[in-house]
Every structure is written in C-alpha cells, then in structure tokens.
Design a protein around this nucleic acid. Structure first.
Lengths: 228, 228
DNA sequence: CCAAAAGTGTTCGCGGTACACCCATGC
DNA sequence: GCATGGGTGTACCGCGAACACTTTTGG
C-alpha cells in the first residue's frame, strides 16, 4: 500500500488512434473485459506508472493493448471532470496517434479479438467520456493537417497524388479540385517523384511520390510555414 | 493519511499569465516562500484537489496566490518528466491566461510583495521546469493569436487601432504596415467604432473601437475562420 | 509653430479558383 | 473497345504587399 498526506487522483492516459481507410477515417477501439463498462468499446489506455512519462505510458498501453507501435503520437488534452470514472477520481491525459493502415504489422496486430477499427462517424457507444475525447481529437486533426505535414503519417511511404488528395478531402470534409490540388502540393516542392507506380489497378497506374521530410524540417527550421 | 494500492504521482497545475505592456509582453511570477527553490521566482500554481477540475484548480491558485480573477484561461500542455520536481513525482497540467494590465483590479492585486510582472524575454531564473512551460505558452500564444480573437483579452474593452496593431507586432515579433493593418482589420467587420477617443495624449487622440464578440461568435458558428 | 501620432488610397503581382478534355491501362 | 481514373493549362479575380503625405491636437 502507498500512503499520502492528501488524497490523490489516479492518473491515466487514453489514445485516439486514427487510420485512413479507402473512403473514411477509422478509430482503433478495445473491448473492455472488466467493469466498469464491461464489454463496452473504449479507447486504448490505462494508468500511468511512476517511472514513465505520460507519453511513454500512452505508447506502452498502445503496444500492450493493441500491439500498435512506432506511430506518430502527440498529447491532445487532459480531461478531468469529477465524475468521468464511476469508481473514483481519474484524470486522463488523452493523446492522439496516426497509424498507417497499409502497414501489415499494424493490420496483423489489430486483428485480435476485442480490438477493432471503427468508422469515425459511426462509432459504437463508448465507455467513460471517450466519445468526447474522440471528438476533440478529430477537431485537432482537422486543424493540424492544414498547417503541419501530419497527413503523411496516415499514408504508406509511397503514395499517389490522388491518395493524398482523398486524405485531405476525408479529414477536412470538403471536395478539392484535382488540378488545383496537384498544382499547389507540387509547388511546395516537398514531394519527390519516384519511378514507381500503383500496382494491380485496372486502369492507368498512378505515379507514386514520397514526402521529403528532411527538406521540410530544414525549411521549418528557417521559419517556413506550411499551409494547405 | 490516504492509502492506495499502487503509487500515485501528485497532480498539480501551473499558470502562465500574460499581460501586455506598452512595448512588450509580461509574465506574472510568484516568489517561492518555501523549499524547494525557496526565494526563486516561479509560475503561480499548486496541487489539484479531489473536488475540482484542473481548470478550477488553476483559477483557484491564480486567485489565491496572485489575486487574479476573471481572466481568459485555457489548458496548455501536461508536463510529466520524471525529475521535474526534486521532492517526488509531480505531473503538472500547465495553463495559460491573458490578463488586462489596464484593469486596475489586476494591477492592485498583483501589487503585493512576492508577486511581479516580468518581461517575457528577460525573465529571472525560474524554479522547476517553468522556463520550458513559459516557452511553450509563448509559442501557443503566437500561433493562437493569428486565427482566434484572443488578443482582445489583453487590451482594455475600448482600444485604438494603434494599440491593436502594437499587440500583434509584440506577439508576432514583426512590424506591420499601418495602412494594410487597418484595412485588413476593419474589413473583417468585427470592430465597432465608438465615439470615444484616447485621453491625455499630447497629440491627436485616436478613435477607440470595441470588439464585437457576439458577431464573431455568430460567424464562427457558421464556419467563418478568422485569419490575421 | 512644433512635435507627435492619426488617418488615409493606389498600384502591382502572386496565388487561389473555376473549369473540361485527352490519355494510358487492364480487362 | 470500353470503362476507369490519371494527368494536364489557362483565364480571372481578389488579397496581400509596398509605399508617403496631410491632418489634428496639445503644449
């Protein structure tokens, strides 16, 4: 047992993991095996240990509960309403993560019982205040994608311009003009043309590009600001 | 004493309160009366109680330690490195606040021993990781001021266009063209001309404006996005 | 009358937007 | 040869950027 002079809230983390599917955004959920909210779907998460930062706790829980590792992950917001956990006072530092659904390691790991990808706008009823956390994460993603190169975290390392455009359309919820999109994206000069093309499509195969992260980092250090 | 099955970190809040002075941004600091870092300057803050949210704790500490109430306040980031407090594991949910230095209540309250306003880029050595928190808050403020109407929280309710321009110049760290600035700001149609003018200046007195928050809220609800 | 800051318009160039057709490929 | 999506150019307009002088006021 551990004793303290004043009462303490328990400190937890939760993760909203986004994945990009053909035509919509998906969120990774875990089915709870124990009360409260037994059998309900919930965000992966758990309690923070004394020897780890909250980010480390978030990564550990993602790995333990869903087998998800090596993803882009950022702190989102700390939720602290008094009754968000029926057992006792729990404050949670929510994070959001972006996973490449094209990555077979991710696919395989999340192929387990009690782990699933759900369409963002058709989620089951979630445990705790997790629906609110998901909504907050979605707003953050929408805001962030326009001025930071986070979208690439959802795509395979090599992607077509149409895939990239669809990503923006899905996240922003608007249609974009193909010619204008390509002109703008290419004028940033941050995509590198590869000599690969799409495979296994039954129409003309699109050229694949990759994001030049080094170049972006260099420009960002010089005060360059992305805007899409 | 309070007992738990697993060890728990202490949960605290800290506040970076910004104020706008004639030619620079100021930060509100408190001189610590007890160890650790006794006599050092630090951000106002303290431990979260079990019956309050972190935002409520931040407002309570601001009020108790500095007499500051009724300010714009938002959550900033949760800092959780293992050794940020030499006593034991403390996780802090940092907030930032914007105070009107023109408000005499604020001036009077912060006129106490051990409370002071310091120029943001000439701070004393701060306790804990508070310098890092201040830096993070400044970055957030710089980002936020360009797409949200938070600057008005630093100005008196009625202000001249020159004051507003100086605010943006100070926060963004750039010079702005007077004619372009006025054209752009007025074209947003969110400022209301009052029939008051500056008082006690020994040159032509500038007209005062006020920010039309209702109109902004209405537009924002319809998807309007501010950008400066 | 002098110092200090308020207030005011125009030109130019770039970037955003609107818009439609031909081409390559697999079946 | 046909269905499917890949890939491409131009014209227009609005907004941001650059730029300097006159007016008002208090002392």
């Amino acid at each position: 047992m551990f004793e303290y002079e004043y009462p303490r809230a328990a400190l937890a983390v939760d993760c909203v993991v986004f994945g990009l599917d053909v035509s919509d955004l998906k969120v990774l959920l875990i089915q709870r095996r124990i009360p409260p909210f037994q059998h309900a779907w919930a965000l992966p998460g758990g309690f923070v240990r004394l020897d780890e930062t909250v980010e480390a706790a978030a990564r550990r829980e993602l790995s333990e509960e869903a087998g998800v590792t090596d993803v882009f992950l950022e702190q989102l917001y700390t939720f602290s309403t008094l009754d968000r956990d029926p057992r006792e006072r729990v404050v949670t530092v929510a994070h959001y993560a972006l996973a490449k659904l094209s990555d077979h390691r991710i696919r395989a790991a999340t192929d387990a019982m009690g782990v699933g990808w759900f369409a963002l706008d058709d989620l089951p009823k979630l445990a705790f205040d997790h629906q609110e956390i998901v909504t907050t994460a979605h707003e953050r993603l929408r805001g962030k994608v326009r001025y930071a190169p986070v979208g690439f975290e959802l795509l395979p390392p090599r992607f077509s311009l149409t895939q990239l455009q669809r990503l923006y359309e899905i996240i922003l919820g608007t249609d974009l003009d193909k010619r204008n999109f390509r002109k703008k994206i290419l004028s940033l000069d941050l995509l590198v043309e590869t000599d690969e093309h799409e495979q296994g499509v039954r129409h003309r195969a699109a050229r694949l590009y990759r994001f030049d992260r080094r170049k972006y980092d260099r420009l960002a250090k010089q005060g360059f600001e992305l805007s899409i």
